[in-house]
Design a protein around this nucleic acid. Structure first.
Lengths: 247, 247
DNA sequence: ATTCTTTTAATGGTTCAACCATTGACAAAT
DNA sequence: ATTTGTCAATGGTTGAACCATTAAAAGAAT
């Protein structure tokens, strides 16, 4: 007979409206929203409420807030970082565990390699080759951090060369979590990685999809084994700290 | 000689601190944060600033804010929806396009099917079978919406049965975007889907990974073809609405 | 005229104090 | 034992005020 009343929070309604405009294409990257004071009047809420909405949207990468005279809230499609940190959160909560990550890395890397073989442009192949050279140079110079960065960048470039941005985002997400491992375990030896990279580049240039997939699969597995060994050696029991509040 | 000073926003610093506590495991799901007024005093900022931070974190699914006497900010690992809406945003911005989605769907579904063959428990297999039955019943009753939901749920269950939550999250993300297609294009005919589902279930029960992967791949491709045909028929030119503000 | 400096206005960032709305616990009445 | 009323804790919202930053306009010096 009577239906329960729904009371939405004002900020959530604002978020929804802005998201809706973006989804419809009425707001495209670069567009500027009215100033906060004006939005407050338009929505009939206080400026603080508008700010809560804008800040949340900025936090998800949908908006960029710039202060100053020509400032304001601008539509930005910098959403990938939010996805990456979302996966990081899932890892922090233990929903995603290292073995899941390893499996996903293998899947994403091999798929990227296959598709890159079919679709990579000459420019992308050149960039990949240059990335390998960077890793070689960094390794020769003893700069392990730079070498590690180059190796991670290689995965990113490979995913981009696949032509599917979903793979690129996933690579970022996996890399974002993996970076913690790399910091804790140190870098795997170059003598394993670099020859594999050379062979992989040869497969890419020859458009040998299965060969490329096999090559990067072996390399990914080798790196995983290295991490597991290193981290297993100095494994600490899972932190189970004192819980605060009313758990 | 002098380095540029960094002026961080107070709310961002608070977000980072809370995220850090979660990442360290000092805050686990269910834990309750101190009340906003207390947090404001602890951080030495105003309550509004605390709220901006808490609202952003709630928006990303890391916190749940409950009002009332025993209310407060609780740690929640309900992060998956944020990832899903992140992918939806990428689609809205045109970064992810339908062909990317189709490719990803194929990859995720076939991988899920393979892994589910190896790992699915009897209970999970039973749930999958029940889901197929639901779809059959809904189709027989003419409830297209329920049938569509059951079909989408099948993908979700299959991904869960793979044992890798990353696949489950990706399935949610892809489904979230695809739902728009389903609404626009209507439901594909049952006579295509259901026999395929039966064969797939047989493969799962027989632990025939390659057979299962092949089966769901064919079905996914068929559905994609259906959508492309339906949407191509009544294709509208990409909405290019009037741009607001200073683009 | 050109260049440098100053001023000004627009805008986000933050604070404060207050009040409302909801919720759950406890007490009181039945 | 059940209902009802009261109360305190807590998030939700408001409005006004002020600060900090930025870009553009105005003005001054050359």
């Amino acid at each position: 007979m009577f239906a329960p009343i729904e009371t939405r929070r004002a900020a959530d309604a604002i978020i929804e409206q802005i998201r809706g405009q973006v989804a419809e294409g009425a707001l495209v990257p670069g567009d500027r929203l009215p100033p906060e004071r004006e939005l407050a009047e338009t929505f009939g809420v206080s400026r603080n409420t508008v700010r809560e909405a804008l800040r949340s949207l900025e936090n998800t990468g949908l908006l960029t807030l710039k202060k100053g005279a020509a400032g304001g809230a601008f539509i930005a499609n910098d959403v990938a970082p939010a996805i990456v940190s979302g996966f990081q959160d899932l890892f922090a909560f233990g929903v995603i565990r290292p073995e899941h990550l390893a499996e996903a890395r293998l899947l994403v890397a091999t798929t990227s390699a296959r598709l890159a073989c079919e679709r990579a442009s000459d420019a992308e192949l050149a960039e990949l080759a240059a990335c390998v050279d960077d890793a070689v140079a960094a390794g020769a110079a003893g700069d392990m951090a730079a070498r590690s960065e180059a190796n991670l960048r290689f995965h990113r470039l490979l995913a981009e060369a696949s032509g599917n941005p979903i793979l690129a985002v996933l690579t970022d997400a996996i890399t974002g979590i993996n970076r913690g491992f790399a910091d804790a375990a140190g870098s795997p030896p170059n003598r394993q990685i670099l020859p594999s990279r050379k062979r992989l580049m040869a497969c890419l240039l020859a458009r040998d999809a299965e060969g490329a997939a096999r090559e990067i699969a072996e390399q990914v597995k080798a790196v995983e084994r290295f991490y597991m060994k290193e981290l297993g050696r100095e494994r600490r029991p899972v932190q189970k700290p004192a819980r605060k509040g009313a758990g």
